[in-house]
Amino acid sequence: MLGFGKFDHHFSTSANAGPLPQANAVGRFGSIGWGDAVKLMLKVEPEDGRIAEARFQAFGCSSAIAASAAVTDMITGKTIDEASGIGAGAIADYLGGLPRERMYCAVMNFEALQQAIGSYRGKAAVAEADAPPACKCLGVGQMMIERTIRFNRLTSLDDVTAYTKAAGSCSTCFKQIESLLARVNAEMVEDGLIAADDAYRIGSATPRAAELKPHGAPPPAANIFAAKATPAHLRPVAKAAPPRPAPPTGGVVDAPPQEALIAEAIEELRPHLQRDGGDCEFVSLDGNIVYVRLTGNCVGCQLSSVTLSGVQARLAEKFGRPLRVVPVS
């Protein structure tokens, strides 16, 4: 799919592929679930700290394999100190460039290299203070994302996704990644790494395409970095959505009636309830009374009235008029 040349050489020949039993420095990154993985194995000469041999094993697309082959090529003969200065950008450049959406292949190898160097220097493998990722599509820790933003001077969400895959699959973690990017960028401005004008501002990303999830299936947790999620009914209510644009004239489908809007709003709340094993569905609307059916753990739960008032507050905020939420069985 990519042009021939250096990239093709590294991918097709895959020199340095395979295990290195006498390795004294090993670094890993990724997993099958994440979709790409690399294991870098280095044999470092203790006298002068020179990397005598480097080998890799990689799982992933052609870019992942080529980047792994490239990094082993780049570090062979270098000292550990020299190798530790190699960034993701240099790995990509060594291949004659990588398409932006494949930059995570270079980042993955950078991470594995840093870990290998750390293991040689006797440090515990780069200790990720992060809680294990709760969002299945993210698969990488918060620290790694922060590092990647900082080292590669990333200022857009699309870049963060291209370099780390974060928020690349489901939209669940989008908001968290967005605030993380804004915070790290603000710090980078303070540190003089980027200009204030370039820093990312929340809300300036182009929205990602909508996606369908099966109804009733519990979606991934919303707050991927929270060690323990706050129960849905105790969490602050999100800001009301901006007013929807008027439907285009001659639109194919009629504007949704009030009932459909309320059903949609309840639909948005369901993932929160489902995470706690409960569920709620819209039954009907009668004037200002919204009838809903609570199911799952919500049935018989002593806190269900709290849940209902949370739903009620959310609906009232969204529609700008008082609505009473009444459970039916």
Binding site: G18, S31, I32, G33, Q57, F59, I65
Partner: peptide, 25 residues
């Protein structure tokens, strides 16, 4: 065969290998 030789994953060793966080192997 070529790509399997490059991959850190495989059925031979049974347990998950190269990288944690994977129940794949």
């Amino acid at each position: 065969t070529k790509l399997r030789a490059i991959s850190p994953f495989g059925a031979d060793e049974g347990a998950p290998q190269a990288v944690a966080r994977s129940s794949g192997s």
